[in-house]
Design a protein around this nucleic acid. Structure first.
Lengths: 336, 336
DNA sequence: TTAGCGAATGAAAACGTTTTACAATGAGGG
DNA sequence: CCCTCATTGTAAAACGTTTTCATTCGCTAA
């Protein structure tokens, strides 16, 4: 029952003042080795465990950071969270994890809850930055970094990949395989990442190859497997005009695409080529294995957290806006 | 910049004492409506946000619970976490999430960190309860509930399904389809859940049908896709003696099994039947769709958290050891 | 010796709440 | 009209640390 044992009990046991105990606990060098030992023994004997809440109140640091993600049960965000947590652990931070479901009100509410809990910093991921949210971000008393979240109109610290160029590369690889019509199955266009970045990459690859843009080749999904299937089936209805190469905005949609194709009796990659986005674990759990754009979520999480620690430690920072490299992982859903 | 605004500032602004402000903030009914409004106005105007750390110190409650899981990036645990978080939110708690990687030392360390942070309770999930850990659990100053974690030798609050009977049902369904030899691809046997529960279910189903137990039909995996493939390939080497019906300990291994089979030119479910365990989202993202035992991780998380709140509120509790129902979801990897 | 100095220690004041113990005010009953 | 009892508000003591500032101690150098 080592609860209710305070620094004061330890001080009494070791016959020193609480200030000295505090010094020992915090590794302050100004303590005579013999005293240090005496205190340490008292700590061990009593099973003293410092109260982080009291510590937080006195020091105004909680060694806790808030993490807001859309939905931790999604493998994609879970990977991000793991990257964040690993680096947090490395720097002795804990994380308070919150799910926003991309709901703007909930996002603001969570932000305020976290600030109330006096977190030392926050890592945020969301699809669209509502302006009310940005306003709160700007007045936040603690630093906030954006992970895999677009930020072009503001200047908040952020970690991303270059989505436009990634999409460009993906589509180009399809074009290089001789396709003239490329299907694009995307998430909601309101989200900058889709509506501006990936879409722009898609179009620029087309233009570069002097291929016409045809609206009927782009179909909306909502990131899920089912929406991928549905989108592909819609494309299939185009008959002869149906594109034979598909770029899907997420791996999960890409799986849906492949299965829709297979269910319709087509062969991937012989009849249709498919390329996904994200390189989640799913990509290797399908036959054919999925060629995909790798968006390194774990790394984005890790780098975000590292960036946050740099800000917290007031370390020198080259740039607030980090762009991580991307690449295409060639597997079997495309012809090499 | 609504930081550094304290309850005292609000009190001054509203011309009342800080205790009155505290009453308003905490919804204490003993405040005259006119006063309440005056205080509320001051709060709004100043943008006052109560400091949860100070509150925690004074009240000895942090409205925060610790969650220890093996690895949040695994879809299985992520689902659990989501269930926990949803119910936590419902009861105004936040969660501090930690990954243990099933490392016994890390588990103990995390437990101590969380206790240091004065969490109001803890939800723990792990594969094997090391006795040192259990000792710490027993002396914990706050309640701990086990989620999807076996607990038979101790009497800690826990939420599980009946793994033995679930495995029994799965194997029986295979036997009912006429199979005499049933393969069992399992996770590490040191973990009670495998070595005792699921394994016992497997054997009892065999016995019940007067089928012989043959050791070469059970193969060890480590929960992953790759280990599932490998295990199936090992079984395949048995040639004619290879079981034509497989019960895999996790969905991910089941996917590996199916792909190993398909890669070897076999048809599922025509030549081989496969049944998985957990019913993760993966199950529907494979062809054929996976028949699987549903272990409702989200529900287990939600119920665990609910149980914890009951303990925290000192509500009446029927039983500490909750067993949730399981069932088999029939899909296409088995013949109906 | 002793003045002077740095290192080691201690005392006490924050930190921002909740909570307790009272005091003041107001209303109702005799 | 006074007394009592609610009701509402106030003051101050926790809560368990960190941190600042002062003090003491033990040496070194003069």
């Amino acid at each position: 029952m080592n609860s209710n044992i305070t620094i004061y009990d330890v001080a009494r046991e070791a016959a020193v003042s609480m200030a000295t105990v505090s010094r020992v606990v915090n590794g302050n060098p100004n303590v005579k080795p013999s005293t240090r030992k005496k205190v340490q023994d008292a700590i061990d004997q009593l099973g003293y465990r410092p109260n982080a809440v009291a510590r937080g109140l006195a020091s105004k640091k909680t060694t806790t950071v808030g993490v807001i993600v859309p939905d931790i049960s999604n493998i994609f965000f879970a990977d991000l969270a793991r990257g964040i947590e690993d680096v947090a652990t490395m720097y002795k931070y804990n994380i308070i994890l919150c799910n926003s479901d991309q709901n703007p009100e909930k996002e603001i509410h969570l932000l305020n809850t976290l600030l109330g809990k006096q977190v030392d910093g926050i890592i945020f991921m969301g699809g669209r930055l509502h302006e009310d949210l940005v306003r709160e971000f700007k007045t936040s008393p603690v630093p906030i970094v954006l992970a895999a979240t677009l930020n072009q109109d503001y200047d908040l610290p952020a970690v991303n990949i270059d989505y436009e160029s990634a999409a460009h590369d993906a589509v180009k690889s399809l074009i290089d395989n001789g396709h003239k019509r490329i299907g694009f199955i995307t998430g909601p266009l309101e989200q900058q990442i889709n509506g501006e970045k990936k879409f722009a990459g898609y179009r620029s690859a087309l233009e570069e190859a002097n291929l016409p843009f045809d609206e009927q080749n782009v179909v909306l999904g909502n990131y899920t497997y089912d929406s991928g299937m549905k989108a592909m089936n819609q494309l299939l209805e185009l008959g002869d005009a149906c594109p034979r190469a598909i770029f899907a905005g997420t791996d999960e949609m890409a799986l849906g695409v492949i299965h829709a194709l297979q269910d319709a009796g087509h062969q991937v990659p012989e009849d249709f080529e498919v390329i996904g986005h994200d390189n989640t674990r799913l990509a290797t759990m399908i036959r054919p294995k999925l060629t995909t754009v790798v968006q390194p979520m774990y790394d984005i999480g890790a780098v975000s957290m590292r960036l946050l620690t740099k800000i917290l430690n007031k370390e020198e920072i080259e740039t607030n806006d980090v762009t991580l490299p991307h690449r295409i992982e060639q597997r079997d859903s495309t012809r090499s």
